[in-house]
Design a protein around this nucleic acid. Sequence first.
DNA 1: AGTAATTAGTCAGGGCACTGATTATTTCAG
DNA 2: CTGAAATAATCAGTGCCCTGACTAATTACT
Lengths: 154, 154
Amino acid sequence: MAAVDLTTHPGHLARRLQQAHYLLWNTMVSEEITSPQFAVLNALVAEPGLDQRTVGERVGLDRSTIAEVISRLGRRGLLDKVRDPQDGRRFLLRLTDEGVRTHRKLTVRTARMNQVFLAPLSADEQTLFFDLIRRVSDAAEGLRNPVEPLAVRS
Amino acid sequence: MAAVDLTTHPGHLARRLQQAHYLLWNTMVSEEITSPQFAVLNALVAEPGLDQRTVGERVGLDRSTIAEVISRLGRRGLLDKVRDPQDGRRFLLRLTDEGVRTHRKLTVRTARMNQVFLAPLSADEQTLFFDLIRRVSDAAEGLRNPVEPLAVRS
DNA sequence: AGTAATTAGTCAGGGCACTGATTATTTCAG
DNA sequence: CTGAAATAATCAGTGCCCTGACTAATTACT
């Protein structure tokens, strides 16, 4: 009696959207490299030598998850990890040649996949789609890290 | 040089959206029951006595995942699982009283959470948001199960 | 009736995602 | 300069998500 219509629940829709994407990625882009892994490669192409934590921040992965993802990419020989001589807590990350090649190859396929994925929407709708999702995500992210209460320095 | 802007990649946005939702759910709805678990409870409120596979279909979870989710709900005493006497392969699922109570409680909180989550969008934009995401997901889902090619019976 | 194909569910294995606790290093304060 | 706070990374634990291989039960085809 009291059942609810999940198609008006953003969380449920978000999950379905991600599943749909996962499937398409698997068939059109790669079965080896996942979408989050590609995001890490991409971040390191843009800014080589980043440390692990910062990469996680760039692509939206927490400290634990980014460690796993990086470990997998390292095992596949797509990136190198070296202690920062300036700060012994950090590891600096840099793509190998193989990592750069992989990124380049997947960039092309990803673009094709995105076209297919978004094909049901007109160009205007696609823009709107990005905008709406981004606004909702950013707002929720903001709730997470409440703006520092402007601490009053005694 | 060849780095790409992930904010125009639907997969990346979908992942971020889901993370944002996960966080909000955890703080505003429940730390025990997850959103997919609630979806299962909801499906069984709507249609008590469904079998496992069909529940999975209703909420969009594959056979393996639905088995895990149901096992957790069973462990928590929120549902019962009995062999179908008509078909010994199936398990029929039914919420316990505790399961019904939990569903009712979470329904209220979920509605509140959805309001907060969608607050950055106007009413019209919310409708559009649902519509765009649903269209993209459904289309991708369609690619997955290509329409049976109308097999020509010799 | 008896074998073949289908179907429901399980299991093993890989990957993503979060929290809370721990370790090592650096920085800050007195 | 030394003890305390902060920071980068790891680890253990839980849960979601998929695939491919397998088992058990049912249905369909001779």
